[in-house]
Simulated scan of single mutants.
Amino acid sequence: MNSQIQKLYEIAGKTERLIIGLMSGTSMDGLDIALCKCKNSGPETQVELLKFITIPYQDDFRADVKSIFSKRDADLEKVTMLNEKIGLVHADMILEALQTWKVDKNSIDVIASHGQTIFHAPKSLHGKAEYPNATLQIGDADHIAVKTGIITLADFRQKHLAAGGEGAPLAVYGDYLVFSKADEDRIMLNIGGIANFTFLPGDLDAGKVFSTDVGPGNTLMDQFIQLHKPGKYYDEDADMARSGTLNQALLVALVNEKFFKIDFPKTTGPELFNLSYLETAQKASNTLNLSKEDVMATLCHFSAYGIIDAIKRTVKSSAMPKILMSGGGMHNPLLVSLLRQALPKANFTTTDELQINPDAKEAVLFALLANETLAGNPINFGDREGVPSVCMGKISLPK
């Protein structure tokens, strides 16, 4: 037997594995690196976050990636070269994190890499009947595996697509395993570039579990401030948004989009919710001369609208589930206050309550996906469109 396959077999047979989960989202502020101890698999899964760090991207590297991000006419040569470069940069960041933590790389069983999404194209967005759901993440896993010397699992979203899903969101798989609680309905709300949540019923029926995108989280606000405030990447403490006023006409134009009427689960991205989308809404509402502060305030209300509407459509009774937040948007005080005002019966908290740093949650989820691929079996979520019962991730060997 190939020695690398033998090693993989031995790792899969362990009851406890050390897995590094990686996440780089649409904000492209840096690479989230989570060192996780994963015990068992399936419903018996236990995860402990041992170490976490976000290593920021250098400005020139970020600009390089943004030059091809979410662009239909991206330079194909640049895409090809960045596929390799991102893998190498991420590998260097992993080695840097391990050195900072004083952790021997030989103690790590596997790396779980999400990669960098550069284009997301579900049928609901591209609208071409002759083409399937599609998505593309780059940052070659072979480069990560060879440079770190650690077996790497990556490209998780492709199996989801192949099995009938839209490639996102994938949180449902990890959320169900480790965050479900008997007799307590939960919503695991992640407010990243795109806002999404997983609904976890208290009766633990996997057939009722689903994860869905609900609309823009930070992406439109981030894009807007980056355009008008060079050097800033987000509206820190909602300073600009809180100094402005909601414009109702612009909000009505922003929410006039078929995505919000599509049933769950569904997925979207900056390919739809971008500055062109905002400009179209401003033209339709005759608000092109609106102050930057009022636009930002309205964009924050727009993000809140998608989340609030989706939660209300999910919860059919007066008993509101516990809502556990994660992602960068949970640090936006205006956005969170709008959610609390609209959902006064909800108990809002964060995944800190579950001993998972909310900023690390997405990276931890990919570690869990890798753990299931190695040691678990597909969880039966029922025969439902968009929630295929599969294990995900391609395996790259370092030798």
Rank of each mutant, 00 (worst) to 15 (best):
A249S: 15
Q226G: 00
E353A: 12
G328Q: 09
C38V: 09
F273Y: 14
F199W: 08
F156K: 09
E184S: 08
A182L: 14
R62W: 08
D140Y: 14
T80K: 13
K399Q: 15
V89A: 10
T15W: 00
E184V: 11
E271F: 11
G207Q: 10
D59R: 08
N133D: 15
L343V: 10
G382N: 04
K322I: 13
L170V: 00
A253M: 08
L368M: 12
E130C: 12
G174D: 00
E184Q: 15
K51Y: 12
E166P: 01
K232A: 13
N357L: 04
M221A: 10
T268I: 07
N190R: 00
A370Y: 02
Y57R: 07
N289W: 01
A284L: 09
P378Y: 03
M325A: 09
V255Y: 05
Q46H: 13
K159M: 09
D213Y: 05
S180L: 02
A363G: 02
Y234R: 14
R62G: 07
G306W: 12
L338T: 07
L177Q: 07
Q58H: 11
K322S: 13
R340W: 00
H228T: 09
N357Y: 06
P398D: 07
S211H: 00
D222F: 02
F224P: 09
A134E: 02
T45E: 08
L288I: 14
G13K: 15
G167R: 06
M392N: 05
A297E: 06
D104F: 12
G231V: 04
I395S: 04
R17K: 11
L365K: 06
A112Q: 04
E279M: 13
M392G: 01
K85D: 05
E44R: 08
T26C: 05
F259I: 06
G193K: 06
D203Y: 06
P398W: 07
G231F: 01
D175Y: 02
D142Y: 15
K159F: 08
Q355M: 10
L354I: 12
I33P: 12
T26V: 05
Y234T: 09
D309P: 02
F199E: 00
Q99F: 03
R17M: 06
P132H: 05
A112C: 11
V336E: 01
A141G: 14
L136W: 14
G327N: 11
M1L: 13
C36A: 10
D205K: 11
I191R: 06
T45C: 04
V103M: 12
G393D: 09
D263T: 07
L368A: 02
K283T: 09
G215D: 03
S24C: 06
F199G: 02
A168G: 12
D73H: 13
G139N: 12
T45V: 03
I68Q: 02
C36L: 06
S41G: 01
T26A: 03
D359Q: 13
V295S: 06
D104E: 15
D237G: 08
K394T: 14
N190W: 00
K283A: 04
S211W: 00
T314A: 10
S317F: 09
A34Y: 03
A238L: 09
